[in-house]
């Protein structure tokens, strides 16, 4: 299992998490290349279908990152995203997919270090869980 390199799709909100990931870049904070970012204007835009689609296509993990509570550029999109993720995890359990494959995080525009840490941790966690059983079924 040691050579397993997970593929992680990350939905990042434009105002906080994406800017935080950019800051990690300008600060040259090294983190694993396993994470593949997708920019959305708000984490509230992340339809659970996107997450399921990513898993169906074989992604080993999906990260959704938005603004901290109270800091959402659109007032409350981050709460909606968080609630959807909680519900989605219930559903994943019923589908026999480890809910830990989906993770929601608050990352602000100034938290480059946190973004790098979140990615590192999540990659380690997914390595522990192992490859997505749906991988290669397409």
């Amino acid at each position: 299992m040691s050579d397993f390199e997970p593929n992680i799709v990350a939905f990042l909100c434009n105002w906080c998490a994406y800017a935080g990931a950019d800051l990690a870049g300008t600060s040259r904070l090294i983190y694993p290349a396993n994470v593949k970012p997708i920019r959305v204007m708000c984490s509230g835009r992340v339809d659970p279908v996107f997450v399921l689609e990513a898993l169906k296509k074989g992604a080993d993990g999906v990260l959704i990152a938005g603004c901290h509570p109270g800091d959402c550029h659109y007032q409350s999109g981050n709460y909606k995203a968080n609630r959807r993720v909680i519900l989605l995890k219930e559903l994943l359990q019923q589908l026999n997919i480890n809910p830990r494959r989906v993770r929601f995080e608050y990352v602000s525009a100034s938290e480059g270090q946190k973004f790098a840490n979140v990615v590192k941790e999540f990659v380690e966690e997914i390595k522990e869980i192992g490859p997505n059983p749906l991988r290669g079924e397409q």
Partner: peptide, 18 residues
Amino acid sequence: GFKDDQILAVVDVLGGEA
């Protein structure tokens, strides 16, 4: 600019590659 099919197209690419 962020329609379902537009985002899903990206998801399919990024999710599908190991």
